[in-house]
Design a protein around this nucleic acid. Structure first.
Lengths: 142, 142
DNA sequence: TTTTAAATGAAAATCATTTTCATTTATAAA
DNA sequence: TTTATAAATGAAAATGATTTTCATTTAAAA
């Protein structure tokens, strides 16, 4: 958790037990959740905890790269842990079965970019690769 | 519009003037819009037109591949025309300046897939590449 | 034509998300 | 340690996009 303490501090966010609890929950599960789901969990640990606090924190965590927002089922936004934390170029993959989320650094878009720019006549500024699949545990039927 | 007439029919959707007006508007502009923006346009052409009708049609059009849904600014969902219409594998690129949307077919993810599967231990079922950039008109300052 | 299922408008409901504001708390300063 | 201050929070209410309901209209099959 030292890493996260440092990250919060670097970004001018105060270190609070609730923030650590949220981060720990994501780290422990490696799954993506809705703000509401996080709230349900947090209510078990803290007698006073409001849903807006969850929304506010998830948004801040995404901004500093601790979390990534994924568009899950039915038009809802979910958040999942991001181990790469803004530092390096990376993409995400989710398991459609158990909602596990992982990130990885390899990427070959650079080799395609020029061609796409020629075909579309756009100057490409960002690319986002998003993968869906089945994780190892789900493959094994866990 | 014959293409779209056929598509609607194939998918069991009735052919109505309002549906054509919506599709034409997307075809003419090549930009992505919110349901509300489509509604504002449609109100000029039809004295009776409800916002739920817009929502219902955009959702159906996306389902049959006429439109694609993009996550635009500020947590809203936008819709843009998709010329490839579900037939071929393709990806989308948007202009962050004028909201133009285009699709293209070239893709090199196949070459990366195996490596990502090894690293992440996922079986990859879908990949989505989403690009943002500046279109030709905006580059020229139009 | 007639029939039938889909499409629609209007109004209301839903529900995720955000805002407001008074209070609490982490942390920097003294 | 104590104090000061800005950030974080809870509670309640507001917002606003999206969906539902249901009676009516309309496209298209019979």
């Amino acid at each position: 958790m030292e890493k996260y303490k440092k990250l919060l501090k670097e970004n001018g966010l105060k270190i609070t037990p609730k923030r650590f609890a949220i981060i720990s929950y994501f780290l422990k599960n490696n799954k993506y959740f809705t703000p509401y789901e996080i709230w349900k969990f947090m209510k078990k640990k803290f007698k006073k905890i409001g849903l807006p606090t969850i929304y506010r924190n998830l948004e801040q965590f995404e901004k500093i790269g601790i979390l990534t927002r994924v568009e899950g089922e039915e038009n809802r936004f979910y958040y999942g842990i991001c181990k790469k934390t803004n530092k390096k170029h990376h993409h995400h993959i989710i398991c459609t079965s158990c909602h596990k989320i992982s990130d990885f650094e390899i990427c070959n878009f650079g080799q395609l970019k020029k061609q796409v720019e020629e075909i579309t006549e756009f100057d490409i500024k960002e690319h986002h690769l998003f993968l869906k699949g089945i994780c190892q545990n789900c493959k094994k039927g866990v």
